[in-house]
Structure formats: structure tokens, C-alpha cells
Write a protein that binds this DNA or RNA. Sequence first.
DNA 1: AATCAAAAAGACCGACCGGTCGTATTTATT
DNA 2: AATAAATACGACCGGTCGGTCTTTTTGATT
Lengths: 212, 212
Amino acid sequence: MTVDGRVARGERTRTAVLDAAVVLATEAGLHGLSLAQLADTLGVSKSGLFAHWRSKEALQLATVDRAVEQWQERIVGPALRAPRGVRRIRALHEARIDFYAARVLPGGCFFANTEFEYNARPGPVRDRLAEAFDRWTAFLERLVGEAVAAGELRDDVDVRQLAYEIDALGIAAAMRSRLLDPDTAYRHARRGVLHRLRASCTDPTLLPEGQP
Amino acid sequence: MTVDGRVARGERTRTAVLDAAVVLATEAGLHGLSLAQLADTLGVSKSGLFAHWRSKEALQLATVDRAVEQWQERIVGPALRAPRGVRRIRALHEARIDFYAARVLPGGCFFANTEFEYNARPGPVRDRLAEAFDRWTAFLERLVGEAVAAGELRDDVDVRQLAYEIDALGIAAAMRSRLLDPDTAYRHARRGVLHRLRASCTDPTLLPEGQP
DNA sequence: AATCAAAAAGACCGACCGGTCGTATTTATT
DNA sequence: AATAAATACGACCGGTCGGTCTTTTTGATT
């Protein structure tokens, strides 16, 4: 906020720490994240981290928030350049699985990995992840709803169901792109969503593509 | 193998350890599994574990194998009682998501959690998980292929693609049944697969159901 | 140049980690 | 009853964990 040099310096450090934390947590897990390793990676001292966050849990929560910001910038932002409606849904899904296929983060998807990691760890971190997931789901549903409202999808489409299935194919792609062949995972996730959208699309020319 | 008392006692211990390891690893992760906690849970000594497996990694590999056995008994076995074809595919998928909805393991699905955990951990354990996943995928594809051969699914169905989408909905259900509302996750995963199967089904009476 | 708070550093703590080792107990065979 | 192997145990090792403490450095303000 302030341009005060003292505060600005601390803010710069915090952002650098969180960016590194997202990368390390994607690999080792957010629970498995080591503060010593995080500090070493940045060339700072571990005790300095506790000057910015009062505990590891506080840093984990901040890391989730930072990962949400990155997701907005890298996945949602580009997709919003596509025209509203079916084309935007498709752009969003493809931006997402492109992200995995490009192996932007060596460890895969921060959210997919972390959400599975916290399946059996109730607490503030899991709650924060669940909130982020809720917002993401609501966003997907809004996009589908817009496409229905624009007449591009049949108006008997179950918006929540369609959004669920689109997201499910993205989740599966996040897993398989690391565990198995990434190209196959990418192609299957892409074709699955295209097929699903076409089944409810009122205008076939909205989704021009070679294979079904 | 032998009914020799010495071997039988050790075998009993090994099985008990692995069963407990599957439960603990589903919660804490297979990498995050603590041998001390595992030994305490069973009331045995930690050092005793190293008499049966030469390292933690060896125990982890054995745990994966044991989880595969349990999957066969609890998911695949019941599904194989359904008649071959579309009905068996549906039975398999429903046995799978029923398993999550029933919250049989408090931590969710051993394989889903673990496969995401090992996204960024190359090595023997990840290889073993990938092998198990390959066998599972091949099994799903075989079931779909059987349904096509029996004329229950249209013969222009892409077998691998359909198997991929069925599995993707199961993976997503495994995540959401813990992170979010389990009933919603169950219903969406079920409806998604039914909808997908009906789209390629030659005989609608094979999938009698209320909602689309 | 002096000041003073933000920021960073480094030594240190108890707890837990995977793993080793020597020893005691069980069990089938002789 | 004696033996030998399989099994189980408790003490202990070096290393890493999250977290605390005190001290030093940095940099804008006066």
C-alpha cells in the first residue's frame, strides 16, 4: 500500500516467499512443505519467515491465496479474452489443460495436489482450499449459465452438472499428465469436453473441430 | 504358502501391518507415512518392521500391492457379479463411488490421494502406482470393449475415450466427497456416467433410470 | 550525522524422523 | 530336553522438523 521503503521491502520479500512456496508446495505438498528448504531456496534465513507469518499454518494460508492469484492471472485471465459463451468455456478448459501439458510447474497442479493432500486433514487450510474450490465451481457455473442465456446451449441443460463434468475432466488431466502420458491425458480431456459441449450446443459452428 | 507355524505368524503380522498402512497412508500420504506411528497403532515395535521389509520404500511398495488387493475385493469383485456389458460398467462405477460415499476410509481414496502425492516424486513407488493405474485403465477399457462387442454400445464408440471419461468422473468424486459435499459429488458422478453411457447405448432399456 | 523501527540473521530448543544394533522371546524340529 | 531359526523388542544414532530467542543490518526520517 504505502510506498514507504521499509514496508515495500518487506512486501517484496513476502511475495517472493509465497511464489517459491507455491512451487515447493506443488512438489512436496503444502503440509509437507519444509520452511528450512523454503528459506534456503530464497537465500534467506528460516527465522525471518516468522517475522512475516506467525506460524507455518499462516504461511500455508497465504500460499493458497497467492496460488489463487496466479490461477486468475494464468488461466482465467487469458480465457476471458475469448468471446462470452461456449467459446469462453472452451477457452477456459483448454487454458487449464494447456497449463498442465506445458508442465508449467514440475509437480503438476497446486490445487489438485493440495486438495487431495488435505482430504484427511480438517482445519483452516482445508477450509481455505474448499472456499477457493467453491469460487472456482461457481465461476464455471456462471460461464455455463451465460452460454445458456445467450442461446448457445440448450436451455434444458443442467448447469451444475455440466460444470461438474468439465471440471472433472480437468482434475483427471491434472493427475494423468504427471503419472502417465501427458499428451494422451491432454487429448482425452479436451475431446471429452468438446463432445460434452456439442451434445448441448444449439449452433454446431460454435465449436468447429476436426474430430468429434 | 507353507502352513509352517513360523512362516504363518510372520505372514499374519505382515498382513496386519499392511492393512494398517493402507489406512494411515490414505490419511497422511504414503510418503508422509510414519513408521513409528504405524508400529504404535499395531502395538508392535518399530524396529520389528525392518525385519519384514528392508526399508520404508519396500514397505511402501508392499502397501500399494495390498491396496490393489483390497480394491479387487471391494470394488471389482462385487461389480463382476453384474451381467457382462453396459450393466457391468455401471455396476463397477457405482461400486466405486458408493465406496467413497460410504466413507469406508476416513481419508478418502488411497489411490487418488497417493497418485497426486507422487506427481512430483519419481521413483519406484510412483512406478508401481502407475502400473496399478495402467492395469485399472486396461480393465475399464476391456469392459467397454465387451459392451461394444455385445452390441450394447454403438460400434463407433471410442473405447479408450469412454473409459477415460468414466474414470475421470470417479477421480473427481474421490476428491469432492471429502473436500465438499459427498452426496452432491456422488450424484453428479453417477449422473455423468449414466448420461455418457446412454448417449452411446443401442438399447435404452439397458439403463432404466429416473433422471437423464 | 543521528535516530529508530523494520527486517534479516544465526544459534539453539525439544520432538520426531528413518534406520541400526544387540538381545530376548517364541516356535518347530531334533 | 536341546537346538536353531524366525520373530519381536528397546535403546540409540544422525538428521530434520517447526519454532524461539537474541543480535545485527538496513534504510527512511529528522
